[in-house]
Write a protein that binds this DNA or RNA. Sequence first.
RNA 1: GUGGCCGUAGCUCAGCCCGGUUAGAGCGCCAGGUUGUGGCCCUGGAGGUCGGGGGUUCAAGUCCCCUCGGUCACCCCA
Length: 423
Amino acid sequence: MTPAPDQPFRALTGMRDVLAPESARRRALVARFAATVELAGYREVQPPLVEELGVFLRMGEATDVVTKEMYDFEDRDGTRVALRPELTAGVVRAFVQHHPTTPWKVWYSGTNFRHERPQRGRYRSFEQVGVEVLGVDDPDLDVEVIALAWASFAAIGLRQVRLLVNSLGEHEDRDRYNEAVRDHFLARRSELGEASLATLKRNPLRLLDSKRPEDAGAVAAAPRIEDFLSPAAAAHFERVQDGLRALEVPFEVAPRLVRGLDYYRRTTFEFVADALDAAQNAIGGGGRYDGLAEDLGGSPTDGIGFALGVDRMLLACDAEAVFPAQDEGVDVFVVDLTGGAAARDLTHELRSAGVAADRRFGGGSMKSQMKSADRSGARFALLVGEDELAAGQVTVRDLRGDAPQSGVARDEVVAEIHRRLGT
RNA sequence: GUGGCCGUAGCUCAGCCCGGUUAGAGCGCCAGGUUGUGGCCCUGGAGGUCGGGGGUUCAAGUCCCCUCGGUCACCCCA
């Protein structure tokens, strides 16, 4: 036997237990999201939590997510595997593996893992919902996808969300731009701090959304992506903007929005929750990743998608005081003063009939049982005492109204409760 | 990975600066007031390795060091 720990076990750093009523709230959020995207023909996909490490490496050799934050380990057979840090790579891998007919429109929800220093809105284990579409190049699809994310926020009542959009251009455009940005910052390297210089070496584009005040001057003067877009990429981006205007989805063009993952091409976008005063106020983001399927060993296939952070969306809901957590109680609570058999049988009967019912175990005084009934949130208390037992009755008491309590024949209790609940 | 702040009852916190008898409050929980009636009120009760370890001291919740955890920011991103 392993000896008991000096201190009680607790959840790992950055990992949290979600208790009621917050757990129900999360489930409700996912349900709203699912309803929103299924209305547009998306179907759920559930990729595994663990993939071969190489699947995730396609997110970018230069990204922190890949280089420093992955929970990777050697499996028993020596395979290098990792807990997913996001879902896009796994979904595209599934596409490559099963080659479903295109367009393949899917949605997902699930937990991801990144080993980062936790802070408000950033945890090592976090949940996302999102969609991916494989096999369509049409800019109107970009519009559909962005509009769905927008509709998802509306579905939970979030209002203070800003949509930022940008185009990173085709593969070659992005590469040329990357060079230009590197040259620009190299020329002004004296202005940059040590940390920024390291970023410059690894991934120059990331410097564009640096929050370090000393970088601000150099960032403001950096070359702009629109000057590097090919005619085709520019036309694509124009069409996306036209579509967003047509659907009345408000947006801002953000030329320095580069996003973190290397696989993004052309359209990229991000959703910022203005109600959140925390540093982690990006509640969602996405874009096109036209080369990813090929990188994972499939044939060249266009792709686009987004992911929304469930934790952050709920924090934003808190900040806006919308989509509150609701503690769902039972419908009825059985109070039994005759030893417990009546409670045992009545709750069973009620539940079998679809009525949410609870009771208190271990007996207790009338007062204590009534107290439990009140706290359970039940609408009705069903009382069984010696009198009721002898008379073959149950007393029905309305805990939320002022109607007088009344006796109901034992055999008719379930029907009576259905009638009173309107079910 | 770097830095600031914070760890005292289930929860929110006071006490720490100026070490000194049995460590407090509010809320919550339990019981009683009401021999079978919850929510309000009153009374009582249970509940604490003062995050952990070491040090200074006659004496440490209080001072010092280490460590673990939390939190916020950088970084990164959802």
